[in-house]
Amino acid sequence: MVIRGEVIRYGDDVNTDVIFPGRYLAITDPEEMAEHAMEDLDPDFHEKIKRRRIIVAGKNFGCGSSREQAATCLKYAGVEAIVAKSFARIFYRNAINQGLPIIESEEAAEDIDEGDDVEIDTKKGLIKNLTKDHEYLFHPLPPFIQEIIDAGGLINSLRKRISSSR
């Protein structure tokens, strides 16, 4: 999968409470979740996401609660990939299960600036920063995780598996 777009930047330890506040947890419709994405962190997020589709952040992105809405709301808000120095583990799993590509790269997370135009090749494990003309390598996701993302998330890939075993 190749994803290209401009970047929105955040810092370290962006937690799930600011990505998707607990007061909205009863919401089950993903489009409605998206309306509250990043509400407690960045009031301009919805303006930015209209043009910029890739989030780049520091360490421990998505720490805190297991709430999957944090990944879901970002995906439905239009985020196409997240690059960070590191991710909190449950967020990492949730993003994959939602079919949201997620990339760990210290180098890229340090070098890429707000607004940079980048291209991510998830299979090759390569990020190109077209604005700066820099390249960063990362460990490509293991094949079965690629499969989940390619299928558009865990549910679709389970559905496929179940129907093919019938």
Binding site: R67, E68, I90, R93, Q98, L154, I155
Partner: peptide, 18 residues
């Protein structure tokens, strides 16, 4: 350990988890 809602749906269906 904690997991997300979607993967729990997978666990409910299959009893398994990666």
């Amino acid at each position: 350990t904690g997991i997300g809602a979607t993967e729990m749906a997978g666990v409910w269906a299959t009893g398994k988890l990666w």
